[in-house]
Amino acid sequence: MIKSSTGNLHLVRDFVEKKAAEMNIAQSVINQIIISVDEACTNVIKHTHKYNDHNEIEIEIEFKDNQFIVTLKYEGEAFDPTKKETPDMKEYFKKFKIGGLGIPIMKKSMDKIEFKHTKPNNNSLKLIKVI
């Protein structure tokens, strides 16, 4: 559980790295998991919690059926990243766009992403990597 602040992102990355290393996962795969969790937490901190660090994000890690699963649980308005359209990167570079790359990085790095919102305001975001 962390306070919802970008100052805690490095703690999240360290936690994920430690857990993944315990499973003897290849470093290149660990790096993909770390950046996905970072991007997911950053989006929650920025967009859902709007940098209000009275909010919290709970991070659970489990390893089952050859899947490394990171679950973020947090309160706030529902936003399903799986529904967000992936930008056309050629167009993105041509127009010198900024931002919006967190979700594409998560989608490229993980095998499956699942979002669930339960009333009144509970969110669960699962980032799944098949090992």
Binding site: I35, F96, K97, I98, L101
Partner: peptide, 9 residues
């Protein structure tokens, strides 16, 4: 992370 990439963009 993407926040860093964003600075260069």
């Amino acid at each position: 992370s993407s926040a860093g990439l964003g600075v260069f963009m």
